[in-house]
Simulated assay, not measured.
Amino acid sequence: MNLVQVLFYVMAFVVVASALFVASSKNLVRSIFMFFITLFGLAGLYVLALADFVAVTQIVIYVGGVLILILFAFMLSGKETLGILQQQKGKFISFNKLPAILFALLFFVVMINVVLKTDAPNLPWIKQATAANAVIKPNDIMTDNIGINLMTRYLLPFEAISILLMVALVGAAHLARKEKGTV
């Protein structure tokens, strides 16, 4: 095993463990900070996959945007609401959650089955890309190509996504503000 594989397994373990902690923790503050670790670990996995632009986008948009919005919503919510959320009793595995757990287990079995039965090096599209030398190498500069395409060919979808993100920001601010006369 080489260093890249060791780093992959370490980061994959960190991402999966922190994501499970986020899903199972009843403490909202700890869940938010573990979500921060999950998002950074995912960015590290993108770097290992030679997707540097996606890794930077992951950090800027999700860690710098979405996670900060979650923190603001948490800080602006009242103590009563947070107290009610943390006092909800229930086990991680209960009868009420059985359909969701079964669905998650079914999805996990299907995913493991696909990974085990896929012979990735012998897939036709991978063989064609390798034969045509159309593979990403560690010294390729992909960010220039992405920037040119975003500002020419994909300008309209890029602007539509920016408007969608602005609407989500305004909606989050509207939901976080307190109405007069409410607790």
Rank of each mutant, 00 (worst) to 15 (best):
A168H: 06
L7M: 15
V15N: 09
V115W: 10
A129E: 03
T182D: 00
R153L: 14
F95A: 12
F35C: 03
Q58R: 05
V109F: 04
V60N: 02
L69G: 02
Y154M: 11
A23Q: 00
M111Q: 02
L20F: 10
A173Y: 01
V66W: 01
A12I: 13
Q128G: 01
V167F: 11
G65C: 02
L116D: 06
K127R: 11
I61F: 06
N113Y: 14
L67F: 00
M11N: 15
G44K: 11
L150M: 15
L76W: 10
D52F: 13
Y46A: 12
I163Y: 03
A19G: 08
A104Y: 08
A55I: 06
L105M: 12
H174V: 14
S25E: 07
E159T: 00
I161P: 00
L82M: 09
V14A: 12
V6S: 07
L106S: 11
I136P: 02
L105Q: 09
L48I: 13
F72D: 04
I146N: 10
G44L: 14
A134Q: 09
A12C: 12
K127N: 01
I163M: 04
L150R: 15
F33M: 03
G171A: 14
T57P: 10
S94A: 04
A49C: 12
P124M: 04
Q128Y: 04
R153G: 12
F74R: 05
I68R: 03
K178V: 02
G78V: 03
L102N: 15
L116G: 09
M1N: 13
G83K: 02
F107G: 03
I37L: 02
L98R: 14
D144K: 12
N139P: 01
L48A: 12
M34E: 05
F72L: 05
F40I: 14
A19P: 00
N145I: 09
F35E: 07
A17D: 07
M142Q: 10
F74Y: 08
M142C: 10
I141V: 11
T118K: 08
V14L: 11
M166G: 08
I93A: 15
T38V: 15
V170F: 00
Y154L: 15
F107E: 06
M166L: 11
A160C: 07
T118Y: 05
V15G: 06
G90I: 07
F36Q: 07
R177W: 08
L116R: 09
N149Q: 13
I136E: 00
F108P: 00
